[in-house]
């Protein structure tokens, strides 16, 4: 099968030893099985994430993203740029759109890019891996690769914010997107229907600066998953994953709760369902152990 080619923007959290390094691991088998070839953009830089605005302001923020777009355009021509991190995707897509709409901003960005020996013509499309899965691969082909259905698992699909807003996945609603639940079904598990915290904010970067306010959000997200009978939360977002998994112990300490809900990525479900090992699925990268998923991963068929 001829593989689909994409210019890949991993983002800082997906680097080796970083907070979402197990996400980076878990997409390898998934992409291999689905005929997706991710070609890493050489020397990519940080997107500025959602708090880059404070010090960075408009043009510097657009310029750091334009550098990645320009590198993709130059080294991987004709390929869509794909990111697995919602913040990377959002920043890049916002930049591509703003530079497309304003010749003044594009001129400014290119004046700055020249200092790094680059130029951006504006030909690159910025996309999210979920878009590649849903739009280019499709649910039928995602399902066709399943060799180990995750039968008997009930999972809360937590979409969060930035994979869903402001751009989202085409054809989905902002209030109740369905694609993540469909992905859960595709791998043979049951989505927790009526999970009303599906698109609630986890606090994002403010989990660091406003811990109490964010932990209130996180508690709601986890408790609702319990209320709906889920044994696990699945998310497409690196920061959601980290915040919702990591701070449960803090909430328990401060508020006397007993939260211990595993939080994994859709790509980990897919890798296990596609027959990948525990390690290939990055399941050794959790603080709250997704035991049942680990058992399925370790099982021979």
């Amino acid at each position: 099968m001829k593989k689909r080619q994409y210019a890949f923007y991993p983002g800082c959290s997906s680097q080796k030893g970083a907070s979402a390094s197990n996400f980076a691991t878990s997409i390898e088998v998934m992409c291999e099985k689905l005929g997706i070839q991710l070609n890493e953009i050489p020397d990519w830089n940080c997107c500025g994430a959602s708090i880059g605005y404070g010090e960075g302001g408009l043009l510097p923020r657009l310029v750091i993203n334009a550098r990645n777009l320009a590198l993709a355009e130059q080294h991987l021509p004709g390929q869509d740029m794909v990111s697995g991190c919602p913040a990377c995707w959002l920043s890049t897509r916002e930049t591509a759109e703003k530079l497309h709409e304003s010749s003044d901003l594009l001129a400014g960005a290119n004046e700055a890019l020249k200092e790094a020996g680059l130029n951006f013509k504006g030909t690159v499309r910025a996309r999210h891996i979920v878009e590649v899965l849903v739009e280019d691969v499709g649910f039928a082909d995602m399902k066709a690769q399943v060799v180990k259905p995750l039968e008997g698992m009930k999972i809360a699909g937590y979409v969060g914010c930035q994979t869903n807003r402001p751009f989202g996945i085409a054809g989905e609603s902002f209030e109740n997107p369905q694609y993540l639940d469909k992905m859960i079904e595709t791998v043979g598990a049951e989505p927790a229907s009526g999970y009303e915290q599906k698109v609630t904010c986890c606090g994002g970067a403010l989990a660091f600066s406003e811990p109490d306010k964010s932990q209130k959000q996180i508690r709601d997200i986890v408790e609702s998953a319990y209320d709906h009978g889920a044994e696990m939360i699945v998310t497409p977002c690196q920061l959601c994953q980290a915040n919702v998994e990591i701070y449960q112990s803090e909430i328990n300490k401060k508020q006397g709760t007993k939260l211990a809900m595993p939080v994994v990525y859709y790509s980990q479900l897919m890798t296990v369902a596609y027959g990948g090992s525990l390690k290939q699925a990055g399941l050794n990268g959790h603080i709250i152990q997704p035991e049942k998923l680990k058992q399925i991963a370790s099982r021979q068929k």
Binding site: D43, G48, A49, Y53, G54
Partner: peptide, 21 residues
């Protein structure tokens, strides 16, 4: 606090081009 971490974040990323968590 958010103003302060936003500043630290930018300083961190601008130093090497990538965030050092």
């Amino acid at each position: 606090p958010t103003r302060e971490i936003a500043r630290l974040f930018w300083v961190n990323l601008a130093r090497t081009g990538r965030v050092n968590e």
